[in-house]
Design a binder for these strands. Sequence first.
DNA 1: TCAGTGGTTGGCAGCGCTGCCAATCACGAT
DNA 2: ATCGTGATTGGCAGCGCTGCCAACCACTGA
Lengths: 324, 324
Amino acid sequence: MTLAEVAAAAGVGESTVSRVLRRHGSYSGRTRDRVIEAVERLGYVPNRIAGTLASTASRLVAMVIPSVTNIVFTDVLNGIGGPLEERGYQAVFAVTDYDPRREESLVAAMLAWRPAAVILAGLEHTEATRRMLGAQACRVVELLDTDGPAIDLAIGISNRAAGRAGAGYLLGRGYRRIGYLGHDPFRDRRAGKRLEGFRAALAEAGRPPAAEMVLEGASSVARGREGLARLLAGAPGLDAVYFSNDDMAVGGWFHCLEAGIAVPGRLALFGHNGLDIGAALPQPLATLRTPRDAMGREAARLVLEDAPAQVLDLGFELIPGATA
Amino acid sequence: MTLAEVAAAAGVGESTVSRVLRRHGSYSGRTRDRVIEAVERLGYVPNRIAGTLASTASRLVAMVIPSVTNIVFTDVLNGIGGPLEERGYQAVFAVTDYDPRREESLVAAMLAWRPAAVILAGLEHTEATRRMLGAQACRVVELLDTDGPAIDLAIGISNRAAGRAGAGYLLGRGYRRIGYLGHDPFRDRRAGKRLEGFRAALAEAGRPPAAEMVLEGASSVARGREGLARLLAGAPGLDAVYFSNDDMAVGGWFHCLEAGIAVPGRLALFGHNGLDIGAALPQPLATLRTPRDAMGREAARLVLEDAPAQVLDLGFELIPGATA
DNA sequence: TCAGTGGTTGGCAGCGCTGCCAATCACGAT
DNA sequence: ATCGTGATTGGCAGCGCTGCCAACCACTGA
């Protein structure tokens, strides 16, 4: 079923059908009705592959994200999706699993679809990835981080500032033996930058981290729970722990509950992200809310508006909660 | 930058470049090296829009799912993604927000890309959606539910059987005043079917639900927590609650913790899905694990193998846990 | 009557690639 | 030297649509 067949059935030319279907150019009401009637009668579905090729203007947006099961990325996807769909754009995505080399090959695969924009997480990419992206006539959005040079558009927060803010809050509340528990800071560079900010703030206050533990693999509630048990076994005197994110922190809270550790009396807990689960805990988690949905929406907006290259820091909000 | 330019630069014909890049047909090693060299020197990225149009065989798979922030769907996405990418397929997705009419228009938009397969959640769709899908030469996969007639391929579990299994387990453990707490069973038809199975099993045992509460909107930990408080206020004598899923059940567990309700001594809790968070609770949640990752992988496999139309029930596993 | 005007309409050349087919080549066999 | 064979290669017609341009159609005003 092609445009030409619809045109023949409606007794009009191909370009007329094309104009009617795209509501573009001029045509009479009578013509429009005949075309619509033929389209519905034949069950015609336009071929956007052909349309995109002919117009050489793609309405595809490629998203290359580290994980789909991490709510942080899906919140962003969610924010991007709406505005994009409204304007007739289609999202294509691929998952890197936090591997820069996989990201590189996925970006190459994505560019083959000639997307209007490519959306990535973070500012760290392989040299080849940056080169490919730079050579294409498409917008590039780097999300979730503003600590470093961007390729084109960057929208996020300063993770170093977030780490500093967490440390500052704990210091301000009087905690003095502060530990860190996190997941892999090399694969998740944003978590790594928070750790850097956290360390720097504590060092400047003359109270460097009393203990640090970094676990391999992705963050999870289970890892946070087991990790805190091990961290405390090695450093029983801690009075506060800064976690790499809320998942880990919720796991930590579970450990305290199980081990009978009073929170925040004997141990304060601080997370990052401001997830719903943290707020739903019987003791709301002290954390830092990141505007993930807004990042997605802003990304979509800047791309659709064809805004000039820029770095947009959306900031974060400290949520005191009840655990610190 | 086009194929023709690369061909000119390498001093060979267009079809030769095409063959080399697709590793298809025959060409000499010397020719291959020259082509590869030219491709790399020029930074050529093939245009898959044109390739797909020319070959009339798309390697796009469309996924139309209710939500990206619900881990149930992203687990499935995750399972699908790997095998698909390996075979050079690309995933395109859109989010319905549990709205069948939105699903309809998104399916129409997706079909315009002439996907090799369309993947949907559940078996309930509008008449127009079914008609469109039936009229296209693409595979259709309906995921997460096997209770009803499928369009083409269906992969999932019987949600009615799951509801029955949950009820059966609670009855078997001696609970007699069993309540239900769930999210919207009409928008989430799978939750609705579990509720049906749950009710049926209890009714057959002569112990119909002692209380039922259905909350509007999506499931969440916070809703489970508040909902259980309200459910118990209206029916204080319950000795067990079956939740529409683990998120709700974890929220319920939080309420019990806060209200000092002994679990499972005074109140047993049972969820659905087998999420990590339930297993990481200090008391592992009694639940029913659904093979979401496997559903995704099987969906990809059947589509890639071009398997005949079928309904594949992957079954579930009852996790006794410690809350029931 | 005739040119001028603005709204409609159809024809057709691409968009960049693939698939088919015919041409060419290398090389051992005759 | 000639032929047959299979591997290698290039040319070119589409894939289904869009964008451009020219043609056409009332009408109007001079």
